[in-house]
Simulated assay, not measured.
Amino acid sequence: MLQWRGLRDHRGECNRAVLVSVGEFDPGVRLERRPGANKDTKSLHHTLSKLGFKVDIHSDLSGDEIYELFEKESRRPVKDCFLAVLSSHGEEGCVFGADGKPVRLSQIFKYFDHESMEGKAKVFLIQACRGDGLDDGVEVDSADDSRECIFSPHHSVPVDTAVMYATAPGYGAFMHPLGSVFLQTFCTLLKEDANRNLELTRLMTRLSHRVAYTFQAKGRLLGGKKEMPCLLTRLTREVFPLGSRPRRCSVLIT
């Protein structure tokens, strides 16, 4: 059992969250701007900070800058948990930097597969399309060219890592000027008392249920369309996001 405690330990280490959001793309890049990206970032920063995470925000990075950031972050100390959010246009296996360059999720995950991250919970939230299952207008985070992004990242996910995608393979993820249904629902759940002692996989199950059964797209073209998040986990222990239990954390090997 691993509890995510927000306070620093005696070594000065704390749980960390890194938010990478691409809302504006470089001139000449044929990807629509994402007007709800800043709303998501603000909500996540507020919610995760209140849970005791040290939150770093990075906006509109290029593909290479995203790679460089996560390679560096994977070597920094963390107490119990590292949480990352990647929000951009995407296709299966990748998200896009502000320069339109595809960033392979498999490479991002591999950065965290090393000794200093052993025994730490690693959680990734991916707000991006994974295909063109929905029309690729301004309401969805999709892209036109998927030729470089057909590689599946699943085999590269390290032990003690959970990856929660906004949508299932092959489908689009909805974005609204007020924020994405996936990330906004995640923040809402973490604010509710009933969810504060849930183990991570149970929390993500509630997230999937709420997105799938309470959200429905509106409008002439996409009216009635739904979104179904997808969880990939290689966790070997129970993880409690709010770490509110009084005893010190222990690890349950399964």
Results as ranks from 00 to 15, higher is better:
L198V: 06
A212N: 01
M228N: 06
K226P: 00
P153M: 13
M175H: 05
Y165C: 06
A143K: 10
A173L: 04
L189E: 11
A173T: 12
D141P: 02
N197S: 11
E192M: 13
S152H: 08
I150G: 13
V138D: 13
T185R: 10
P158H: 10
F215Q: 05
E192N: 07
F186G: 04
E199W: 04
T233Q: 14
C187A: 10
F182G: 08
V140T: 14
C230M: 05
H176D: 09
H209F: 10
G219I: 03
S180K: 03
A166M: 00
M228H: 13
R220H: 12
E148V: 07
N197P: 06
N195P: 08
G172I: 01
E139N: 11
C230I: 01
R210H: 03
K225F: 08
T233I: 01
P158Q: 07
G224N: 07
H155A: 15
N195W: 10
Q184D: 07
F186S: 11
L222T: 03
A194Q: 15
L200C: 05
E199F: 00
Y213F: 09
P229Q: 06
L178F: 01
L203S: 06
S142F: 04
M175Y: 04
Y165F: 15
D145A: 05
V138I: 05
T161N: 11
R210G: 05
F186P: 09
A168C: 02
A166C: 09
R196T: 11
S142G: 15
D145M: 09
L222G: 04
R147M: 13
V163T: 09
